[in-house]
Simulated scan of single mutants.
Amino acid sequence: MQCYLCKFIPPRDDFLATMTPPEQDWMSQHGAYLDDLTARGIVVAHGPVMEPSGGYGVSLWRIAEGEDIAALTAGDPIIRNGVGHYEHFPMLSLKSRD
Rank of each mutant, 00 (worst) to 15 (best):
R62K: 15
R80C: 06
F89Y: 15
Y33L: 06
A70M: 12
Q24I: 09
M19Y: 01
N81P: 01
V44G: 02
I78T: 12
P10S: 04
D13V: 08
M50Y: 10
T20H: 01
I69K: 06
D98E: 13
Q29A: 15
D68G: 00
L37N: 05
M91T: 07
S53C: 08
I9P: 01
D35G: 07
L16E: 12
E51V: 02
I78P: 03
L94T: 05
E23M: 03
D76I: 07
L60A: 10
I63V: 14
I69S: 06
P21T: 05
T73M: 07
G31K: 10
W61K: 06
Q29G: 00
G75Y: 00
L72M: 11
P52A: 09
R80F: 00
G47M: 02
I69T: 05
Q24R: 15
P22W: 02
V83Q: 12
G31Y: 12
T20L: 06
G66R: 11
A64D: 15
A71G: 01
D14Q: 12
E87T: 10
K95V: 10
A45H: 12
Y33W: 11
R80T: 08
H88C: 03
E23S: 02
R12V: 04
P77W: 04
F89D: 05
I69A: 04
Y56K: 04
A74M: 03
P22G: 01
S96W: 13
I42A: 11
D68W: 01
M27W: 07
A32D: 14
I9N: 15
L94E: 08
V58M: 15
P48E: 12
I42M: 14
I78M: 12
M91I: 01
K7Y: 01
V83A: 05
D68M: 02
H88K: 06
L60C: 08
A70L: 14
G82M: 07
S28D: 14
C6H: 00
Q2F: 01
R62M: 07
F8R: 09
A32G: 03
Y86S: 10
S53L: 11
W61D: 10
R40A: 13
G31W: 09
A70R: 15
R12S: 13
E87F: 00
R40D: 13
L92V: 01
D14K: 12
R97Y: 03
P22N: 02
R80I: 01
L16N: 07
S53I: 12
L5S: 13
S93G: 10
T18S: 13
T73N: 13
R40L: 09
G75N: 14
L34P: 04
E65H: 10
I79F: 05
H88V: 05
L16A: 11
H46N: 13
Q2Y: 05
F15R: 06
E23C: 04
D36S: 11
E51T: 11
V83F: 01
Y56P: 02
D76W: 03
D36T: 13
V43Y: 04
D36C: 00
